[in-house]
Amino acid sequence: MSDAKAPLPQTAAIGSSSTPSEAAAGAILTIDLGAIRENYRRLKARLNGVRCAGVLKADGYGLGAAQVASALAKEGCDIFFVALLGEGIALRKAIGSGSDIFVLNGLPPGSEPEAVAAGLCPVINSAAQLKAWRETARGMGKSLPAAIQVDSGMARLGMAPAEVEAVAGEAGAFDGIDIRFVMSHLARADEPRQGANEQQRLEFDRLRKMLPAAPASLANSSGIFLGPAWHYDLVRPGAALYGVNPTPHQPNPMRPVIRLQAKVAQTREVGAGAGIGYGHSHNADGPLSLATISLGYGDGWHRRAASAAWFEGTRLPFIGRVSMDSIILDISALPAGRLSEGDLVELIGPSQSVDDAAGHAGTIGYEILTSLGSRFHRRYIGI
């Protein structure tokens, strides 16, 4: 039986009226929330009781922050991280109270009242953000929660060492602020033999000792696999929850989470010399059987990602250029008539992982996930 004729799992509502129906969509993205829960359990099993948050930035790495948060909450997760204030506000509306939501990029100037109203915790990355949050707390006459991030060697976000020293010597710098965590971020955690990881850990220890005592957090997904010395009081996995391999060049310890399948829009036979796709970037050497699928760079499948699709275990290479809404496949390896209009071919799934697809595109699994567009019909399973 072909994929197209297999029974489909029940679809969960995702709260978006713009999500196309299965019949209307050109491709189907299946998201296994049960696999996300299993990945969370696998990570927690490595932590010896250390708390484990869930990173839901970029709408849960493109898979639906509200749905992922609901799944993780069933595993006891009650701390979430997003990147932007708008993401935090949307997540709070979706999941209600009862969980802490931290905003990794901090708050834009003047947006502090919105964060308070939504019950969000900023990650304070600078002395200016610290002052603004302190003044907000003073104006409201109450203590406000926050995390303090220090730059231990990535030069991206967080207070630089000189800034940490300055605020540490400032009387009343943290008045009215309930410091939930002091945190930093690892730059090379996916390279376990790099000395930079130990250097950052030592610098993190040095900087946090200057600040008020608070629980500490350093490890991201890959950082969890560096060992207990990097775990501290809270770890913050993101990509590993979604099935991306946190230990590159080793077997993936996580379960795959997504399956992406595209519909066949048309099949055809061409003869020798036929030009195929934009720019005739391929010319047939002999007779070929082709199929055009309803997926392209308009759906987030990168134009440079020359690769293949799969049907019943058979590899069907891309041929010609990726278009905005379509890709041409060479289906000559299949029996004549085996693939028909409306059948589904697999782009990501058992035959080709997220990391495989990323490798073909010259990128990383994170970018593949967060690029997946809104034109897919989304199915949630394992609820």
Rank of each mutant, 00 (worst) to 15 (best):
D3G: 01
K5Q: 04
A13H: 03
S17E: 05
A24W: 03
A24R: 04
G26N: 02
I31R: 10
R46P: 11
N48L: 03
A53W: 03
V55N: 07
L56N: 11
A58K: 10
G62S: 10
L72H: 14
L72D: 13
V82E: 13
S99H: 15
V103A: 12
S111F: 07
E112P: 05
P113G: 12
E114N: 08
G119I: 06
P122A: 10
N125D: 04
N125K: 10
T136F: 00
K142G: 02
A166Y: 08
G169V: 01
A196L: 04
Q199C: 00
Q199A: 09
R201M: 03
L202Y: 01
E203C: 01
D205M: 03
K209L: 06
S217F: 08
S222Q: 13
G223Q: 12
F225V: 10
F225R: 09
L226E: 13
L226W: 12
V235W: 04
G238R: 10
G238V: 05
A240T: 02
A240H: 04
V244I: 14
P248F: 09
P256E: 09
V257E: 01
L260R: 00
V264E: 01
A265N: 01
A272D: 07
S281R: 11
H282Q: 09
A284D: 03
A284N: 09
L288M: 10
L288Q: 06
G298Y: 07
D299K: 02
D299Y: 08
R304T: 14
E312W: 02
P317S: 13
P317I: 10
G320R: 13
G320C: 12
S323Y: 05
S323R: 14
M324H: 13
I327K: 04
S332I: 13
V345E: 06
G349M: 01
A357Y: 09
A361D: 04
G362P: 04
T363P: 02
I364T: 12
I368R: 00
L372C: 05
L372W: 07
G373E: 07
R378V: 10
R379V: 15
